[in-house]
């Protein structure tokens, strides 16, 4: 148990030798020399996620690599009488734009192209700001991180659309929708970026160079 009177509230939890449990959010006393377990749920305690910087960087780089096959390979093919050309995410969106479905094309474009790209750039920027001075205040960067985490699942939108179309559009030999390898690459990219965001530790933003910033 923690004695509130001995806590120095001008310092953060790490300096006060506390650790918040990542699982149940209970605040525990923390001894850096031994393995600490949470008093309430017995999970292993850490003041900061170990190797968070390296893990986030590695996973972000992997999702950048997966970004290319995800956008270059077709995610689905519309077959009319057995013939048809594959649609990548961008060409499918472009087709909808040209056919006047502008709002829906905008939603798909934002969810499946802008969000993943913004996520990757955002994570790289957050990692950069941990090591080098940044113009954006730390509070705003924390908010940025929370949005990056929140928007992750929405990138799956196009994969679900493919799933619905593949199942629904099957009119004998006349018209058929077949899924393409781009869908797998895209799914992997989304998962990698979700894992990358989850491995980042937002407490790092408040640790580094504490004196020269807001």
């Amino acid at each position: 148990m923690i004695n509130l009177e001995s806590v120095d509230f001008t310092q953060n939890g790490k300096a006060n030798h506390f650790a918040t449990c990542d699982t149940c959010h209970w605040v525990n006393p923390f001894n850096p020399k031994i393995d600490n377990l949470c008093e309430r749920c017995n999970s292993k305690l850490q003041q900061r996620k170990p190797l968070a910087f390296q893990k986030t960087l590695a996973l972000t780089l992997c999702s950048i690599i997966a970004f290319f096959p995800a956008n270059l390979y077709p995610i689905m093919t519309i077959l009319q009488f057995g013939k048809g050309q594959g649609d990548t995410i961008l060409s499918g969106t472009l087709y909808m734009f040209q056919n006047g479905m502008i709002p829906i094309a905008a939603i798909v474009f934002i969810a499946s192209f802008i969000f993943p790209l913004a996520k990757i750039i955002g994570l790289i920027y957050l990692l950069y700001s941990v090591k080098f001075p940044s113009r954006i205040s730390r509070r705003h960067r924390s908010h940025m991180y929370r949005y990056i985490e929140m928007f992750g699942p929405w990138s799956m939108l196009d994969v679900f659309v493919v799933a619905i179309l593949v199942s629904l559009v099957e009119i004998g030999n006349v018209l058929e929708v077949v899924a393409g390898p781009g869908a797998t690459a895209f799914g992997i990219m989304v998962l990698l970026s979700i894992f990358a965001a989850a491995s980042f530790d937002s407490k790092m933003l408040w640790d580094e160079r504490g004196t020269d910033e807001r």
Binding site: M96, P153, M156, F160, V161, I164, L165, L168, V169
Partner: peptide, 17 residues
């Protein structure tokens, strides 16, 4: 859990077809 995303997916496919 991504039910809301799938819901928007249903809407997008409705507009496409």
């Amino acid at each position: 859990e991504m039910l809301e995303v799938f819901m928007i997916g249903i809407l997008v496919s409705i507009f496409k077809l």
